[in-house]
């Protein structure tokens, strides 16, 4: 993509994203958190075995970063429907970020009570902030996405996650 075309696309995305700041964009019912899926996450992280109980969970809980690391909670899309970089159909799809190439650059999380397996979880997502920056390779956006994960039964907040993405 020519540089001026890319920059135009980023500028257009900035206007679109800025208009969405603060508005709850999506609500998803994730369903009960599976014990095996959470234990697989711990294994994939190479979490020290000394931290894991007989179910493969740290302290009998869902790993702290599990809910904010999983990018898809449904069946997803067929390969032909994915973007060239392999993404699409994930939790970010419903946000107005189309056309941006996103790279995660960190999270800020607060935790409520520990999450136990089988907890039924709802997730709300919104754009928390957007900034336009001049990077080494031209203009880019810093987009902060807010995810709130709550207990579906009680409404109690389990995790609040502000995740920053660089969008090019």
């Amino acid at each position: 993509m020519a540089e001026h075309t890319r920059e135009s696309a980023v500028e257009a995305a900035f206007e679109r994203v800025q208009a969405a700041v603060g508005k709850v964009a999506t609500r998803h019912h994730l369903g009960p958190v599976g014990k095996v899926a959470a234990a697989r996450f711990a294994v994939a992280c190479d979490t020290p075995p000394t931290l894991l109980d007989e179910d493969g969970l740290p302290g009998g809980r869902v790993p702290n970063l599990y809910l904010s690391s999983v990018l898809g909670w449904d069946a997803g899309r067929h390969e032909a429907e994915l973007r060239l970089d392999g993404t699409g159909g994930d939790v970010l799809t419903d946000l107005p970020l189309t056309g941006l190439r996103l790279m995660g650059v960190g999270q800020e999380l607060t935790f409520g009570r520990p999450v136990l397996p089988d907890t039924d979880v709802l997730m709300e997502m919104s754009i928390d902030a957007v900034e336009r920056k001049e990077g080494r390779s031209g203009v880019l956006l810093l987009v902060t996405v807010l995810r709130r994960l709550v207990d579906a039964a009680s409404g109690e907040e389990l995790v609040s996650c502000r995740e920053r993405f660089v969008g090019r």
Partner: peptide
């Protein structure tokens, strides 16, 4: 982030209640 969280819990204990956590790549 997971490597850093595991570092924290390996010291604090798996049952420690993490209240806040953040990292930057």
């Amino acid at each position: 982030g997971c490597y850093l969280m595991d570092t924290l819990l390996a010291w604090a204990g798996a049952g420690a209640h993490v209240v806040a956590f953040g990292w930057r790549n």
